[in-house]
Simulated scan of single mutants.
Amino acid sequence: MRYSNPHLPASEYTANNKHELREMFKLLVIAILIIAGVVFLIDRLVYLFSPYIPFSWESTLVENIPLINKNIEQKHTDIKALKQEKMLQKRVDIIASNMNLPKDMKITAHYLEGATVNAFATLGGHVFVYHGMLEKIKYQEELDALLAHEIAHVYKRHITQQMSRAILISVILTTAKLNHSGFGRWLLGDGSNIGLLAYSRVAEQESDENACHISLKLHGHTQGVVKLMQQLNLVAQQQGYEWTKSHPDTKSRILFAQQYRLGEQKLKPMKLLF
């Protein structure tokens, strides 16, 4: 005698399929939530504890990052470029001496050719300023505000935090073999950027506050910070969304700097630095 499965009515068969799909969907959602929760929890721990990583480790790590190392080892032969870099280092030393930096935290200034209107800090206390940025700056107080802002990124260990978080997320997803999945690509890409964006804006606000405090200490006012933010506001208008992805609204930054301003003291032209 041959056995065969009983024939189920169509309605019962459809109901079973729907039930199984619902259960599978629930399990998938639960798995995604657990993975996201674990990543978020570890991410927060890394963000909180990464500032305690010895600063000397940063300097060692920089030597193994070709892109950063290439800019650090760049030697200028042009007299004007050498003069610019020497001037930047002088201002950096003055600003650093007015901050409570750890003894092993050395800040090194670098001048970069190019029309890019930007400045940035990297691991190991290296601060880079593009020629295009210097062309936009008219006053000493503006330059000091810019450098104080970038030095704050080093001092507050913002770069260490961001890099540690990015590496962590990548390692977790690679270990879980999710780095090539749609969810993994989203978390490594847009999903991760959402978190990085929130933290980077907090970092920018902390650095703005440091720029204001240093400006008050060195110059007695924050007009240099205001002037700098007005220049950056013009850049934001030109670059649009790309700038606002990683920077707070420049108008709010101007208002923040203006609340510290004490008096209308005359600003010193940049040419006096040479």
Rank of each mutant, 00 (worst) to 15 (best):
L33H: 02
L33T: 11
I34A: 04
I34Y: 00
A36W: 03
A36Q: 04
G37D: 01
G37V: 03
V38W: 02
V39T: 13
V39I: 15
D43G: 14
D43W: 07
R44Y: 15
L45Y: 12
L45H: 05
Y47T: 11
S50Q: 10
S50V: 09
S50M: 11
I53E: 05
P54I: 06
P54G: 08
F55W: 14
F55L: 13
W57C: 05
W57K: 03
W57L: 12
S59P: 03
S59W: 09
T60W: 09
I65T: 04
L67A: 15
I68N: 09
N69E: 15
K70A: 12
I72Y: 01
E73D: 14
E73S: 15
Q74M: 13
Q74E: 13
D78P: 14
D78Q: 14
K80Y: 14
L82Y: 00
L88A: 02
Q89M: 01
Q89H: 00
R91Q: 09
R91T: 03
V92Q: 03
I95T: 01
I95Q: 01
A96V: 12
A96S: 14
S97K: 15
S97Q: 15
M99T: 05
M99V: 04
M99R: 06
M99S: 04
L101T: 12
L101Q: 11
P102M: 04
P102N: 04
K103P: 01
K103S: 14
D104C: 04
D104Q: 11
M105E: 12
K106I: 10
I107Y: 10
I107C: 10
T108K: 05
Y111E: 03
Y111P: 05
L112Q: 10
L112T: 06
E113G: 00
E113W: 00
E113Y: 02
A115S: 14
V117C: 00
V117M: 00
N118H: 12
A119G: 11
A119P: 12
F120V: 08
T122S: 13
G124T: 06
G124C: 07
G124D: 07
H126P: 01
F128A: 13
V129N: 02
V129S: 02
Y130F: 13
H131P: 05
G132Q: 01
E135Y: 00
I137M: 13
K138P: 03
K138A: 11
Y139H: 08
Y139G: 00
Q140H: 13
Q140D: 09
E141G: 03
E142F: 10
L143Y: 06
D144C: 08
L146E: 01
L147M: 01
A148V: 02
H149T: 02
H149C: 02
E150I: 07
H153N: 05
H153E: 05
V154K: 00
Y155G: 04
K156Q: 14
R157I: 08
T160A: 09
Q161D: 06
Q162E: 13
Q162C: 07
M163Y: 10
R165K: 09
A166L: 10
A166C: 09
A166R: 15
V171I: 14
V171S: 08
T175F: 11
K177V: 08
L178V: 03
